[in-house]
Amino acid sequence: MRQRRGGVNDSLQPSGPRRSIDLLAAAIEPADGFVVAIYAVAMLPHEPRHTLSELRAFASSQDWRVYGRAFWDCDRSTRPIDRAGWRQVEHLTTGGFIQGVVTFSAAEVSTDVAEYEAVRDRFEFRRTFLAHVPDDWRRAQPDSGSAG
């Protein structure tokens, strides 16, 4: 059995990292491992290739399989459901195509604590998880082929 590793950095919300680890532990891991989507919020209306590459590397370091494409938005709405990329990610969790979503921080889901908690409640209900790259995580080997 594979050891589960939880990448969490949940300083935004009052329930903190413990709840994210609990969500990961409660998620139903398929026999061939978790499939996760990577999601980022960009400052400019261009695909954040470097950020997505780092998220992909982090997910791989956790032995998670990354869904076929990455998701991102340039919209900074505090309501993630108002963002097209996030809606696609939510549909994938609802449909059971992915078991988790990886972002750099909780703020990429929402900077509003109540809104973030609502997302976590939905994920908990679906037995899926959110993972955020810990501040101290560093890629083991740089990906020399990525542009960003």
Score class of each variant (00 low, 15 high):
Arg87Val: 13
Glu29Pro: 01
Arg126Asn: 08
Val36Ile: 12
Glu29Ile: 02
Gly6Cys: 14
Arg76Trp: 08
Ala42Val: 07
Ala27Cys: 08
Ile28Arg: 12
Arg4Phe: 12
Ser11Leu: 10
Ser77Pro: 03
Pro17Val: 06
Ala37His: 01
Ile98His: 00
Arg122Ser: 11
Pro14Trp: 12
Asp73Gln: 01
Tyr39Thr: 14
Val8Phe: 07
Asp82Arg: 06
Arg139Pro: 00
Ser60Pro: 00
Gly33Ser: 07
Asp112Lys: 11
Ser144Ile: 12
Arg138Lys: 11
Arg69Ser: 11
Met43Lys: 13
Ala27Trp: 03
Ala57Val: 01
Gln141Met: 15
Ser61Asn: 06
His46Tyr: 15
Pro45His: 10
Arg120Ile: 05
Asp75Gly: 02
Gln99Asp: 04
Ala106Trp: 05
Ala107Arg: 10
Tyr67Glu: 07
Phe34Ser: 00
Arg127Lys: 13
Ile81His: 07
Arg49Ser: 14
Thr128Glu: 06
Ser77Met: 04
Pro142Ala: 08
Ile81Trp: 09
Trp137Cys: 03
Asn9Lys: 12
Gln99Val: 02
Asp82Phe: 00
Asp112His: 12
Asp10Ser: 14
Arg76Tyr: 08
Ser144Leu: 15
Asp10Thr: 08
Gly85Glu: 02
Arg87Phe: 09
Arg49Cys: 08
Gly6Tyr: 08
Pro45Ser: 15
Ala118Trp: 08
Gly16Leu: 05
Gly100Trp: 03
His50Leu: 14
Ala26Thr: 01
Asp22Trp: 01
Ala27Glu: 01
Phe97Ser: 13
Glu29Asn: 05
Asp10Cys: 10
Val66Phe: 13
